[in-house]
Every structure is written in C-alpha cells, then in structure tokens.
Design a protein around this nucleic acid. Structure first.
Lengths: 344, 344
DNA sequence: CTGTTAGCGCATTCAA
DNA sequence: TTGAATGCGCTAACAG
C-alpha cells in the first residue's frame, strides 16, 4: 500500500493541508516546514493518488486523441504514427497524459452503438479534460455532441464551423504549389488523384488543384479527376481510370497513392517521369527512397500534433477565452525526380 | 453540471445504494425498481464519474501501452501502428481504455529524469491498472521497477525472466524458415542483416539464422552478419558492408531493412533475385507491392497486441494466479519474387 | 431486497 | 502560516 497524504503529514508532524500545500507549490508554507515535508515525501516515495485528486479538483490532466474511423488506411499511412508522436511529445512536455481512442470500424459489435457507448464513458464520465479529433468525416456526429456537452476540443484538420478550434496545414496552397510546379514544367494535361472527398483534406487539395489551373486560365477537365482514399490500392485504381485520358502529369493527394499510381503507370509500359510526371503530397520518409524519388509537398505533421495539444491545453486551462483559435501551418514543395527534374 | 448518483436516487425515489446496484448489475434489485431507476438514468443522461468510482474501487479500467524508446525508427516502421490498433481494438472489446506513454528520446529535458517522473506519476499515482511494455531494450530499468511495485504488466516481445509474462511471435523459427528456404533454393553464402542486438527480437532472429545454417552442417561466417537497426537506412548501410563478401542471398530481419538492402544491391549494378536473393521479415503491407515483391516472414502483429491485452486484463482481474503466462504466436513463410521463385 | 453508514485520498474553504 | 472541517461522487459492509 502506497503512503497517503495523511501518513506523510503524520510523519512530518504537520496537518494534511500543509502537505497538500507543499505538493501543490502553494507559497504560504514556511521554508523549513516545506523542506521537512519534502524530506518525508522523498523518503516515503509518496505520490498523490490520481483519482482522489481528480475527484477533488475536477481535473484529470488527461487528454484524448480520438480517431473516429480508424480503418486500416490510417495504419498503413505513416501520417498517423507521426501525428501520434507529435501529440505524445507535447503531452509529455506539458505534464499531461494521453488517452488514445480508436473507434475502429468492423470490430465486434455494432460500430455506431459502440462508439456511442465509448463516448458516454470517456467523455461524460469525466475521464478527459479535453480531446483532439483527427480524421473525422465532416459529418461525424461527434462534433455536435462535444459542442453540446461543452467539452474542450481541437480538431486536427480544418473544420468549417465558426465555434470550432482547429489546426491544419495549408492544403489548398500545398496542392496549388504542386500543380503550379507541373505547369511550369510545361504540362497541360494534368490529372489528379484526390483523397476521400468527405474529408476536408481531400476537398482542399482538390481545390488547390483547381485554383492552380484556373488561375492560369486553364479549364478543369472533370475526366482528369479521380477520387482515391489515401491508400496505395486506391491510388492504383484511380490511376487505372485516369490512364485512358492520357494525362502527361498526375498530382496525387498523398505519397502513398502516388506510389500506387507509379506502379500502374509502369505496368502500362510507360515511364515516370518521362511519359507521365508524378507529384505526391506528405513527404513521408519513403518518398525520398522510392524509385524515382518523389516530388511532393511536405507538411509538418508532428508540429500539427504538438500545436493541437498546445491549443487544447490553452482551452482547458483558460476557459474564459472566447476567441476561436485557428492555426494553419505552411506546406512546402520538395522537388525530386518524379516530376522530371533531376534535382537533389 | 452532470447529474450524480444522489440526484438519480432522489428522482427514482430510492437510495444511492440501489442506483449503484443497478449501475453495477448487482442481481438483488427488484425488477420493477431496476426498471424505474434505468428510466431515470436514461432521462437524465446520468454517467458515473470515473474518478469517484476509481477512488472507491481502486480500479481505473485504464491500461497503459508504454514504449520506452520511441525513437523515430518506430514510427517509420508500420509495426507500431498495427500493434497499437490491435491493442486498441482489444481494449475496446473489454471495455478498458488505453493510455499511450511514449518515452521519446531527445525531447526537451533530460530524458531519463523525465522518464522517471512519468513513471512516478502514471504508475505510482495509480492512473493505470496495468501496463503493456513494447520495444524496450533488455536492460531497461522499468522491468525491475514494475516487479518491485507489484504492477501487473505484460511484455510484448520475449523477456527472459522467470516472473515476467509476455507474448511474442516465434522469431527464432521464423528466421529459421526464411534461411532454410534460401538453403533449399541452393544458396550457401547467405548473409544476414540483424535487428538491434540489444533487443530480443534482434537476437532471436539472428539465432534462427544460425540454427538454420548449423543444422545443415554449415559453418556460420561472422563476416556475413551485419547489425542493422530496423530502419531503411540501417538496412542500406549494413548491405554496403556485406556486399564485398559476395553473398548470394541475404536474410534481413525486417522488411524495411530488406527494402534498403535491395536498393543498395541494385545501385551496385546487381539484380534481385538473380544475383542476390533477399528475404525479409514482418510482411508489412508494402512488402507485396515493392519491386520485386518481397519474400518474407509474416507475423500476426495485431494478434500480438490483442493477446497481450487479454493476458494483462487476466492478471488485473485475477491477481491470485501465480502461473507465468507466455504466449508465442506462430510465424509463416510468404514466398514472393525477391528470393528467386516467381510464386504468387 | 433495500437503506444507512462509513470511508476512498485529496483540495479547499474558514478560523485561528 | 497553519490546522480543522467539509465535500468531491461513488462503492461496500452491515443492518434491517
């Protein structure tokens, strides 16, 4: 049995309140008393009981990272692990703890009922001081519920609602830069493999593609747009649909899809970048080592995670603030070989 | 303010105890009363307060997944995300929650002091009912502390200590199958790129390599062994050291390293599998889509995760059991093109 | 089967 | 600056 406040107090010859003050850095404790108490704390290895403290303070110092549709996709894409690491690191440095809730699909039991149950337990049960939401479809009911229950939360990825805080990378601009680069190289039949269009990132990258073309005075040919799902296989299938359209370049909304596309292009007997140039999005570690190295848009995923944590903790610790926080991190064009320039 | 037990009791015209019994499925409550209480619970949206409950029961229903050395490595390898998913799914189905603790290196602040602090807070603070440890080096101090503090834990990966519970895949046999396959194909100069040798998986796969050779009566040539670190770059560097030895085949202890090795082999003007055959380990999703598709050893990573959770919850809920649990899941040879057989 | 009582370990008034 | 008292919301042992 670990020692309690009570026992520490007795050993130090003071009251529980005093020990509590020492633990919580309250200033009004005589230095000598404080030192004596600390000594006992060290000797006994006393550690405050988290549940007891939470019950008294109504705070847990735990935040949740919720990923509503944790399908396989997310776990073959390196995006996630990196995001998780960014979030975890930030939690560590703020002395918060991280609870991971994956509402996977297709596991035992009705998924939406399950999800509901989890929501009830974790959020209404006051397990968490706040939550981060990532990769939720725009119409996920969780947003409404969180607003309704008044739970502090930050969305990773843009969310078009005036009361919702989010952090995102500049997907529109990133996509635009990618396509503009292809335009500069002289391409005119540029196709795109989009992300899932029920997600903001998917929509925004498509929007960037459109903007690049129209601001050049080019028409957008809908036949050159194929929807993917951020998976390698999705990329392959989309590319297969695009091939008959004879594009000279393709902008894929993720590196993983770009890799799939390259495979299909080659299987068709064409060369990258000579016959079809390819640009991806993400700059995952693999991007620089595949053949040919991928020209892509780099996004600072771990910063996204740590920034989200920072915002969330701000909301938790300063609930009065009524400003809605929105952070958009910049993206960057990384030129490699897959677009036709032998750079780097 | 969410409703409390007290309020529900008042509304239902019963005592708190009765409501508590209803919530906890205690049998001795008259059906009609039970129904009345449930009605109030539904109407009010009552949810038990997690901290209050934990304080009373000494249980949190939260388990931790601790990864002591969460270096970048772990996050470029798909192993992790899959493990996490397996763990998360199992938690969901047992109605437990998952806390993720990454003790990353090189973050702000002295790493080992930080780690200590985290340990104190999370484990001695009774946040967790038990923990899973993954990817810890064999000499990590955490094992001793957990034993000492009497905290239920299960290691993901074999751990050679008589009182420690673990789950693992059969690394020795897997590696052995890989090398035996190469032997069957007629290779005799088989090199290996190992994992980090301070981790059990690294050691065991090397042991499998040795066993395959010696049981064929072949000598083990230490010059054909190069230590890697499970990263793509590590694989490349190891392969560079091996090339001068002129192996005709290489067994890499992870797919990611195998991919790096293939790159080096090709850059040297050699062909895979014609000049050098390659076999990997893991069967990550990428393995089947790289060029050439990778012959490899498949390990059931998500089962590893869910099995670990199952064991851990067993330990938590039945502390009396004094048997030490050890589960070793089978591995499987998956033949593709990189070893010289155009199968699949 | 049900209500009463007594903690679980801590933070936080309020007096002193 | 310190201590005594109170309550956070729940479970569990004991009576009835």
């Amino acid at each position: 049995m670990p020692p309690t406040l009570e026992e520490v107090a007795k050993l130090a010859g003071v009251s529980r309140s005093t020990v509590s003050r020492v633990i919580n850095q309250h200033p009004s404790v005589r230095p000598e008393v404080r030192e004596r108490v600390w000594a006992v704390i060290r000797e006994t290895g006393y550690q405050p009981h988290a549940a007891a403290r939470s019950l008294a303070t109504r705070r847990t110092r735990v935040i949740g990272l919720i990923i509503p549709q944790a399908v396989t996709t997310l776990f073959t894409d390196p995006y996630f692990p990196i995001l998780i690491r960014g979030v975890a690191d930030a939690c560590n440095s703020f002395q918060y703890h991280l609870m991971l809730s994956l509402f996977s699909q297709g596991q035992a039991g009705n998924s939406s009922a399950r999800q509901d149950e989890l929501y009830q337990q974790v959020l209404r049960g006051q397990y968490l001081d706040g939550v981060l939401i990532s990769s939720a479809p725009l119409d996920d009911p969780i947003f409404r519920r969180l607003l309704q229950d008044g739970i502090p939360f930050v969305v990773v990825g843009r969310y078009p609602h005036e009361r919702i805080h989010y952090v995102d990378v500049d997907n529109v601009n990133g996509a635009r830069m990618a396509v503009e680069h292809l335009l500069r190289l002289g391409h005119e039949r540029i196709a795109t493999i989009t992300g899932p269009l029920n997600m903001c990132a998917g929509q925004d990258r498509l929007e960037g593609y459109r903007q690049a073309l129209t601001s050049r005075g080019l028409a957008v040919d809908e036949k050159l747009i194929a929807e993917g799902d951020f998976t390698e296989q999705g990329g392959r299938m989309a590319m297969q649909r695009l091939l008959p359209q004879r594009p000279t370049a393709v902008f894929a909304a993720s590196d993983v899809m770009a890799i799939g596309a390259i495979k299909v292009i080659r299987d068709a007997g064409l060369r990258v970048p000579d016959d079809i140039a390819v640009v991806g999005f993400d700059d995952i570690p693999l991007a620089s080592v595949v053949e040919p190295p991928l020209t892509t848009i780099r996004q600072p995923i771990d910063q996204l995670g740590s920034m989200a944590v920072k915002l969330l903790i701000g909301l938790i610790e300063n609930p009065e603030g009524s400003t809605v926080h929105r952070v958009v991190l910049p993206t960057e064009l990384v030129i490699r070989a897959s677009c036709g320039i032998r750079a780097k």
